[in-house]
């Protein structure tokens, strides 16, 4: 059986907000390592990989690996019934056809209990090879969200160019063009806002902005984001959390 108690229930609410528009149904794979999820979006252009490690829960108990098939829109609706400061406990039996959720307020005088029906999901699991990327950009997650949103005004896609000087996001469309360049600035006072670049080789890649904007729904989960790129392989956008991560992979747009 699974029993996982999350002191900061708001984290789970934010995680659901970060994935529910990209994916409809997914298996939460529970093991002694924690709770993981891997799923492609409906058009098979993007892949989401989520890990909530066991040490992020107190207590965490999972005797036997379990795949909990969940409709993410339904789960997100149930989670809206939890207060932001509530402690959330997830429970499921080994033969479970429901996921039990308990929300306790901080005064411990209001306890709400919900049960969400589970479903059988026959999802494809993809093997993601360890990749050494040609360019890794670490930057403020809020800045990344702003750039994607701003450039969406101009075009459906963005060209990302990374050199040792900086990273340039450019978009061209019917109404004109625009570009935002962030210079590498590791010495700034505010570490959280620094743009850091690890570069083996310059890269120039095109991606759909619609997906990138969708990925930025994870912004409330982390102040930093990393963009890992190599020519003609999927972009990895990673938001690291205290005990886990959310990774989005996006296939590039490849030249005509």
């Amino acid at each position: 059986m699974l029993e996982a108690r999350l002191q900061t229930g708001a984290l789970l609410k934010k995680v659901l907000e970060a994935i529910k528009e990209l994916i409809t149904d997914a298996n939460f794979d529970c093991s002694d390592n924690g709770i993981a999820l891997q799923a492609m979006d409906n058009s098979h252009v993007a892949l989401v990989a989520l890990l909530l490690r066991h040490d992020g829960f107190e207590p965490y108990r999972c005797d036997r690996s379990l795949a909990l098939g969940v409709n993410l829109v339904s789960l997100s609706k149930v989670l809206r019934c939890a207060g932001n400061d509530d402690i959330i406990t997830l429970k499921a039996d080994d033969t479970a056809d429901v996921l039990s959720l308990t929300f306790e307020n901080t005064d411990n005088d209001r306890i709400s209990e919900y049960e969400l029906k589970l479903m059988d999901i026959d999802s494809e699991h993809l093997g993601i090879p360890d990749t050494t990327y040609e360019a890794v950009v670490q930057m403020s997650s809020a800045e990344f969200a702003r750039i994607c949103k701003d450039l969406q005004v101009l075009s459906d896609s963005v060209q990302i160019d990374v050199t040792k000087e900086g990273v340039k996001f450019g978009a061209k469309g019917e109404l004109g063009s625009g570009a935002v360049t962030l210079k590498q600035n590791g010495n700034v006072d505010k570490e959280e806002e620094a743009t850091l670049i690890e570069l083996q080789q310059n890269v120039s890649l095109n991606f759909s902005l619609k997906y990138l904007v969708n990925f930025t729904k994870a912004t409330p989960l982390a102040s930093r984001v990393s963009l890992s790129m190599s020519s003609e392989v999927p972009l990895l956008v990673e938001y690291k959390m205290e005990a886990g991560y959310i990774r989005y992979y996006l296939a590039p747009k490849i030249g005509e």
Binding site: M40, H44, V45, A46, L47, E124, H125, L126, G127, I128, P129, S155, D156, S157, N206, S208, V233, P234, Y249, L250, A251, P252, K253, I254, G255, E256
Partner: peptide, 14 residues
């Protein structure tokens, strides 16, 4: 605009 490629062409099915 350049065509969008499926993510499945980059990762193998387990």
């Amino acid at each position: 605009t350049a065509p969008q490629v499926s993510i499945k062409s980059f990762f193998h099915t387990v």
